[in-house]
Nucleic acid binder design. Structure first.
Length: 489
RNA sequence: GGUCGGUUAACCGAGUGGCUAGGUAGUGGUCUGCAAAACCAUUUACGGCGGUUCGAAUCCGCCACCGACCUCCA
């Protein structure tokens, strides 16, 4: 198992060599969605990013336990302590049970993830299924003196925590400065400090989702679930915690505080954050009302979209940028990704009919080494893709006869594509299958042979007519040096 | 206002103190009955002003602009 992989640790703000705590095992926790609405382009970016990490770690031979939670309770809107629960709000709007809402959006979320060929995590725990664990965690924090109870609610004492530990180390914030720069929010008299956050909230009379607890009938605070579930499934200390950059503060900061307050030590070794997707230079945000849902992207049904984009086009678009950069959405960029992906997939198919030469005029093993280097360098998928396009050029040139590739190098290339294009980048050839249907294949052979006869007699009107009519039927015909190839549009 | 990050050619998007990233689009050529594809060649770059250096787009400083976080967000 090689350990050349380096990843950017948000905690140290630099690239660090990845050294697992207990090789060959790796514990990976990623903040999953709050299931109160359909999944959007931003979700795709986050989960494609960590899917890439998951796939590459497995490729390196690690045994990864990947935990991605589903938030189905406790996530409030607006001010963290006064807002309405997102799930409950949606339940009221759609006149459903909260858990019906949860199920509905879990179903579409998982469907979208499958469309994007994102592998299922090892465990997808739900917050509502871990109320006991969350309560136990609160008890530990209370016992250690870093939380207090007011009116049946329990809050984390940030100021006290900050005296011994460092609240703000992940996001680079200093508590005193935060306090100076923050306006006093109203309606927070239950809390001792403005940055204290809820661990347990007493349910108001109309609140639907509620559980008994030593403090009140209520529900857990949002930040708690990740600490509780990561500890349960990955242990007190584990390797990697991931999520969107926007979660760094306050969510991940609070997670660090909770775990540290409960166990006296931090739980995460490497923090990784993916950057945002922007639309016309601005972050996609609910408040800006510029969301594009994945279903809309796949169907083209959105005012900003000129056309539909397939799941693999979206995946490839995301992978063509580095995960720590913002990517700006545009139709042009998506269309460029679509074309590029087609080129990659066609070259992969051409690989199968490549005629070997006695020797090679290209260095395939060097290409392979470069692919690994790119991924080892903080998952540099754009560089990896650029190397794969060098492979594309070699394949096409070999088909044309301007480069030579030996039998063993063809095998290496095939392995290279299988490994990096399909296993690591997780791409799928969406257009594959045209030749799978034997009957169609036979019919097409007859048509192509008849057309070839016409061509041999230089009856161009007939041959062009056949090509034209096939096109209308959705079949693209391309003449080769000997014969022709076809594909379904 | 505080903190952090960015500004790369027509568009997207990497990277580096001196060596063509890549994709898409454009132009010219090869191939072809034509078309498509492919191949070869090729145009417009590193926000501005200084500084360090033999050499900077890459390091430093200042300025301009953009964005993120500081409230829910992937």
């Amino acid at each position: 198992m090689d350990n050349k992989l380096s990843i950017y640790n948000s905690l140290s703000r630099k690239k660090e060599q990845f050294i697992p705590l207990n090789p060959p095992f790796v514990g990976l926790y990623v903040c999953g969605p709050t299931v109160y609405s359909n999944a959007h382009l931003g979700h795709a970016r986050a989960y494609v990013t960590f899917d890439l990490l998951y796939r590459y770690l497995m490729h390196l031979g690690y045994k990864v336990r990947y935990v991605r939670n589903i938030t189905d309770v406790g996530h409030l809107e607006n001010d963290a302590d006064e807002g309405e629960d997102k799930i409950e709000k949606r339940a009221r709007l759609e006149q459903m049970e909260p858990m019906e809402v949860v199920q509905k959006y879990i179903n579409t979320f998982l469907k979208n993830m499958e469309q994007l060929n994102i592998l299922h995590p090892s465990i997808e725990p739900r917050a509502s299924g871990h109320i006991i664990e969350q309560q136990e965690l609160i008890k530990s924090i209370l016992k250690n003196g870093y939380a207090y109870e007011t009116n049946g609610s329990v809050y984390f004492d940030v100021e006290k925590y900050n005296k011994k530990y460092n609240y703000g180390k992940l996001s680079g914030r200093v508590l005193e400065e935060l306090q100076v720069n923050t306006r006093n929010l109203e309606g927070q008299d239950e809390k001792r400090g403005p940055f204290d956050f809820a661990l347990w909230k007493k349910a108001s009379p109309g609140h639907l989702m509620r559980w008994p607890s030593p403090w009140s009938e209520g529900y857990p605070g949002w930040h708690l679930e990740c600490s509780a579930m990561s500890t349960k499934y990955l242990g007190e200390v584990f390797d990697i915690h991931g999520g969107g950059m926007d979660l760094q503060f306050p969510h991940h900061e609070c997670e660090i505080a909770q775990s540290t307050a409960a166990q006296g030590k931090e739980s995460v070794k490497y923090w990784m954050h993916n950057n945002m997707i922007t639309i016309n230079g601005q972050k996609m945000a609910r408040s800006l009302n510029n969301f594009i849902m994945l279903d809309q992207l796949f169907s083209g049904d959105h005012p900003l979209l000129h056309q539909a984009y397939s799941p693999m086009t979206v995946r490839f678009f995301i992978l063509q940028a580095h995960y720590r950069s913002t990517i700006d959405f545009s139709n042009e960029a998506l269309q460029a990704a679509e074309k590029g992906l087609q080129k990659l997939m066609k070259a992969n198919e051409a690989l199968n009919r490549l005629k070997p030469s006695l020797s090679s005029s290209v260095d395939i093993s060097q290409l392979k080494a470069r692919c690994h280097e790119a991924m080892d360098d903080d998952l540099n998928s754009p560089i990896l893709i650029s190397h794969l396009f060098e492979g594309v050029r070699i394949i096409n040139a070999a088909v044309d006869g301007t480069e030579r590739v030996s039998t063993s190098d063809i095998e290496t290339l095939k392995r290279l594509f299988r490994t990096f294009v399909f296993e690591v980048l997780g791409l799928i050839n969406e257009e594959a299958g045209s030749a799978d249907d034997k009957l169609t294949g036979n019919l097409m052979k007859i048509i192509i042979d008849l057309r070839q006869d016409a061509k041999n007699r230089k009856e161009w009107t007939i041959s062009d007519n056949i090509r034209e009519k096939l096109k209308k039927a959705g079949i693209i015909l391309k003449d080769l040096k000997d014969g022709a190839e076809w594909e379904i549009e």
